[in-house]
Simulated assay, not measured.
Amino acid sequence: MVRARYTLDDIRSEALRLVDRDGLAALNMRSLATALGTGPMTLYNYVRDREGLEELVVDAVISAVDLPPPTSDWRRDTIQIATVTWRAVRAHPAAIPLVLTRRSTSAAGFAPAEALIAALRRSALGDRDLLAAFRAILGLIMGSAQAELAGPLTSPPATAKDTAARIGTLAGRNFPHIEALSHVSQKSSPEADFTRGLKMLVTGIAAA
C-alpha cells in the first residue's frame, strides 16, 4: 500500500501560510499545490474545491487556539477561553473573512466552542440563557476581530490610534459623542477594549 505523501494537517497548515503571505485571492488549487511542491490534481485526493480549501483555512486558525485547562472559576475560564480564541483569530488578519463566514468542519475546530460552553454551563444558567450567553461572547470575539480588520480609513493601513483620530475628524461637531469617544479610543488599544468589554459582558452574564 502506498503511503500518502501529505497529511490533511500538512495541507491545512500550508493553506493558512499561503493566505497569511499572499491574501485570500491567492488561495486556489494551483497556488497551494505549488507551495507544497506537487501538482493540483494531487490535492483533489484531499479536498474537493475552493470551498473545501477555505474550510481548511478556518480549521487551521481555530484548531490552533491554545485552550487553558478548566478551573473551578467559570468567569475566569470564560474570559481566558474567549481571549485566546480572539488572539488566535486576530493573528491571521487575511483569514478573518473566512472565519466570520465559514464554519469549522473538523473536530479540533469545535474545541474552543465546546470549552466556552462548558465554562458557561458551570454558571448554572438555564439552557436558553446559556445559548444567549454563548452567542453574545462569540459575537464579541468575531465582531471585535471584524471591526479591527475594517478599521483603517486610509491607505496604507493606519494604526488603531490613527483610525480613531480620523473618525473623530470626520465626525466633527455634527456628531459630538462620536468625536468625544474617538479621543478616548486614541488612548486605548484593541486588546484593552476587548478585555474591558469581555469583563463587562461576563459580569452581566453572572448577574443573570
Score class of each variant (00 low, 15 high):
G143P: 10
P152D: 14
A171K: 09
R166K: 05
A133R: 08
A160Q: 13
L140M: 11
T163L: 03
G109E: 06
R173I: 14
P157D: 08
G143N: 11
I137C: 00
A150Y: 11
L149I: 05
P112I: 02
A171E: 15
L149M: 08
G139N: 03
L131K: 01
D162Q: 14
L170M: 10
Q146C: 08
G109P: 06
L170C: 06
K161V: 13
A147Q: 10
G109A: 04
L153I: 15
A132P: 02
T154L: 08
A108K: 11
L153H: 10
T159G: 01
Q146V: 07
L125I: 05
A118L: 02
G168C: 03
L140D: 13
R135Q: 13
A115M: 01
R122N: 03
G126V: 02
G168F: 10
A124E: 13
A136H: 14
P152Q: 09
I141P: 07
A133L: 12
A165Q: 11
S123L: 08
A124G: 03
T154K: 01
T105G: 04
G143K: 09
A147N: 12
G126Q: 00
D127T: 04
P157C: 07
S104V: 10
E114T: 06
S144E: 06
T105M: 05
I137A: 00
A107N: 00
G168R: 01
F110P: 03
P112G: 01
R122A: 04
T154H: 04
L131M: 05
Q146S: 11
G139R: 02
R135T: 13
P156V: 02
A124C: 03
A124M: 03
A150R: 02
G151T: 00
L130C: 07
S106W: 01
A147G: 11
A119E: 02
T154S: 06
P156Y: 07
A145R: 06
P157F: 14
N174K: 15
L120I: 00
L140R: 07
R135A: 13
E114F: 12
L153S: 09
A171N: 11
I141L: 05
R128F: 12
S155Y: 15
P157I: 10
L170S: 09
L149N: 04
G168E: 02
G143E: 10
F110V: 06
F110C: 07
G172E: 14
L140G: 05
A124V: 04
G168W: 06
L153A: 12
S144L: 00
P152N: 06
E114C: 02
R128M: 10
L116H: 11
A165P: 06
A171G: 12
T169Q: 14
R166N: 06
D129C: 00
A133V: 13
L170D: 09
I167V: 15
L120G: 00
S123D: 15
L140N: 08
R122F: 10
A119C: 03
A107D: 01
L170Y: 13
A119S: 05
A147M: 14
G126A: 01
G139H: 05
A111L: 13
G168N: 01
L125R: 00
L149T: 07
L120R: 01
